[in-house]
Design a protein around this nucleic acid. Structure first.
Lengths: 171, 171
DNA sequence: CAGTATCCGGTCTGATACTG
DNA sequence: CAGTATCAGACCGGATACTG
């Protein structure tokens, strides 16, 4: 039916018709087999994303999430449970001197691995959504103090321009 | 109250307590001023994200989206309208020889700029969510044919390890 | 604190049908 | 095709209260 017969290639879209992603009537991968779709099912929800935002900023306690997000407690409870079950947050007991233990929700390794996603989203917002407003946060390299961006890199660690990126169906 | 008094620094979390993001009771940026929160409000919704997934794979027509996603037509209609109003999709008329014009929804430059976000999400899913299942898609450099990853880079285009990344509040 | 329980009005979802 | 119309039911948002 289309390009997929041999191998599915997705060039960059520069706005010029010739370089546009070719029209297709169906994605190359079914929703049920698509890893991206699975990720969307797991964290692609407004409250869940807002919780992850706060978590990346160091928020860990139920009432801190609740106060900051203004989410109904029942909803927050449900989302934290789901994130815990999916291995993105870990619920653990935090004990301080003299006080009794309290639960806290901490990002697991899997949860921390979402950082590039959320930072890429932040930079998209900085670049495309904010009309003139300067970004309140800056991301920098600890050593050089230069600004950091999210971008495509090859195996040697060199930046690859988006126009050079190709998507192919695994054989 | 916490680290924010001087400058807010967010080191990497390697799982070891000493390197964890410090506990905070509140994010350094209010929800209303946060660019990330704005992005979440704009596209942080299951159907919207699934629509963007299909759009990046070249789907452009109403019924193609509907068939692939199984979304209620009313919902799909609403999401496409919102994405168009937010400048992420452009609704335009596509005319083919002899047939009458039909509408199609094409990613704008702003929409295409979401590609790193969705590819980062795909790679997160590949790395953390898929139990053994190999990813159905591969992302490569057109020239070298090497695999491509989403990562942090500095201004010189060199990859920066996540542990070197710092977040600071703009003064 | 950290939740669970309950209630209510509203929006979203899902299914099906209908129109230009 | 590309939508709008309609409708029942689920889920959400907001409030408040209760418990360990």
């Amino acid at each position: 039916m289309h390009i997929l017969t041999k191998r599915w290639i997705c060039p960059a879209n520069s706005g010029k018709p010739g370089r546009m992603i070719p029209l297709s009537h169906q994605s190359p991968v079914s929703l049920s087999a698509c890893h991206l779709a699975k990720a969307i099912d797991t964290i692609g929800d407004r409250w869940t994303l807002l919780i992850l935002r706060s978590a990346l900023f160091g928020v860990r306690r139920f009432d801190d999430f609740q106060r900051e997000l203004g989410a109904p407690r029942t909803v927050l409870s449900g989302r934290l449970k789901a994130l815990t079950q999916n291995g993105i947050l870990e619920k653990r007991m935090y004990k301080t001197e003299g006080k009794r233990a309290r639960p806290e929700y901490v990002l697991t390794k899997t949860g921390m691995a979402l950082r590039p996603v959320l930072i890429a989203l932040t930079q998209w917002s900085d670049d495309c959504l904010s009309q003139g407003k300067p970004p309140p946060l800056s991301f920098t390299d600890a050593a050089s103090r230069q600004p950091i961006k999210v971008a495509f890199v090859d195996t040697s660690g060199r930046k690859v321009p988006p126009s050079q990126m190709r998507v192919a169906l695994r054989r």
